[in-house]
Amino acid sequence: MKKQGANLLVLIGIITLLLSSCIKEQKKQIKKLEENISLLKEETTPIRFKILGKTNDSIHLLVKFYNSDKKEINSFKKTLNGQELSIDFYMVPVKDRFVAFPSKIFTDRIPADAGISLYEYYNNDGYPGIFYTKDIDKDLYQGLKDIYQKVKSGQVDSISDHFGNMVHDIQKVKSFLPENVYSIVTHTKGGIEIIEE
């Protein structure tokens, strides 16, 4: 009887130990999965804009730029010929995500080559100000600075898998409305979205 009791105790002990080590592994796996999900859901808002006025031929707008701490870093007002407003980005792969550099603003009547270049609006001593944050890592700072310089000057041959990504309203189905504010949201997987606030 005593021997059976002792055996049972040993068995419970072994099972508990095994389960504990399995649970430790499970927790690691759960943490990793949660991190991956949050990375996929990660999004930033480098640009917000407001349509100040609209006619059949022109769009009057106010564009604001924000850093990673959501602080406004620059803004401008422009009137553009056209009815559909387009905001173009340059997407560059960095490690396991895409980094989006706002590149141009143009319309349905202005071709991309004749659009307004946006690079200088967030230029902070050669660093892309939209990525600035208080706790930025030194290596990341330098890396982003180098990529920004290349993208700005059009020397992108050394960057693989880069592409342009532009978002715009559609006059016939869903147009940007005067007095409305819109956010441009960039995703780590390379997508860009317009969210009406």
Partner: peptide, 11 residues
């Protein structure tokens, strides 16, 4: 649906 817009990718 959280957003509807025009989106053009280019290369």
């Amino acid at each position: 649906i959280r957003s509807i817009y025009g989106n053009a990718v280019h290369k």
